[in-house]
């Protein structure tokens, strides 16, 4: 437990030592800010629904960029060897890195809290969906971070890790938008597998245990797969 914390804190600090953190956060804020506010005054609705509906798509590109270095860089530099020969288990390493990435994405969301503050100045904001939306965003971020970490554990090349990660996250994002291609018999299954519908329910302010379970399952499966990859690769 202590070691998970040590690794998570170290990785989290690492983001802010290098310029990556600042670049990714700026990029995220510019993209979300632009897409959200460019249509905000046209719709003339005092809520964050459009912001949250954008998140899965933006996250599926931003988060793999956050997670791509976590394993790939260590493998490339060789520090992976020093890390693995210290008395830490594979699970501790994977969980530590996962927590660091999730904390980082959560930190990235903090500046966006100014959006509801700003909107509340010009209209009545229903606080429920906003809180639900942020909770959902953290769960979504956790799920995508775990997928990104799995992608990073597969290769020593950060670009390859980014592409695999994006492909995985993007698939989950668009799965429930491709339903009309699927045979009707497996429709409910495919819809359940996609991240979109689960995130949509939470961001409406409805916290359903099935949606929580979905995100937790994605995290569990990805971290477990990462563990298997780490085990098999040596």
């Amino acid at each position: 437990m202590k070691q998970i914390k040590t690794i998570a804190v170290k990785e989290f600090k690492d983001y802010f030592i290098s310029p990556i953190a600042y670049i990714v956060i700026s990029l995220f804020l510019i993209v979300t800010g632009w897409f959200f506010f460019s249509t905000f005054f046209i719709f003339d609705r005092a809520d964050l629904r459009d912001f949250f509906s954008l998140l899965p798509l933006i996250f599926s590109f931003i988060i793999p960029a956050v997670t791509m270095r976590l394993f790939s860089e260590e493998k490339n530099v060789g520090s992976y060897e020093t890390l693995l020969t210290m008395p830490v288990s594979f699970t501790d390493i994977a969980l530590g890195k996962f927590l660091a990435a999730t904390m980082f994405t959560a930190a990235m969301l903090i500046p966006t809290l100014s959006y509801p503050l700003f909107i509340s100045l010009i209209g009545e904001v229903d606080i429920g969906p906003v809180i639900g939306g942020y909770i959902g965003a953290v769960f979504l971020a956790a799920a995508y971070c775990s997928l990104g970490i799995f992608a990073s554990s597969l290769t020593r090349n950060q670009i390859v890790a980014f592409i695999i990660g994006t492909a995985l996250c993007f698939t989950l994002t668009i799965l429930d938008k491709l339903l009309f291609f699927m045979p009707t018999s497996i429709l409910p299954v495919i819809e359940f597998l996609g991240a979109g519908s689960h995130f949509a329910t939470i961001s409406k302010g409805i916290v359903d245990s099935r949606d929580i379970l979905y995100f937790v399952s994605v995290v569990f499966i990805s971290i477990f797969s990462t563990h298997i990859v780490m085990h098999e690769k040596n």
Binding site: K2, T6, I17, V77, S79, E81, M86, P87
Partner: peptide
């Protein structure tokens, strides 16, 4: 066991003190 791999691959972006402190924490 204490192990020093060939060409000492350490975290390049960390300060020596921070790195050794991190190692000490990991080693309990």
């Amino acid at each position: 066991i204490g192990y020093l791999p060939e060409s000492a691959p350490l975290y390049h972006n960390m300060l020596v003190y921070d790195y050794l402190d991190y190692v000490a924490r990991i080693k309990g």
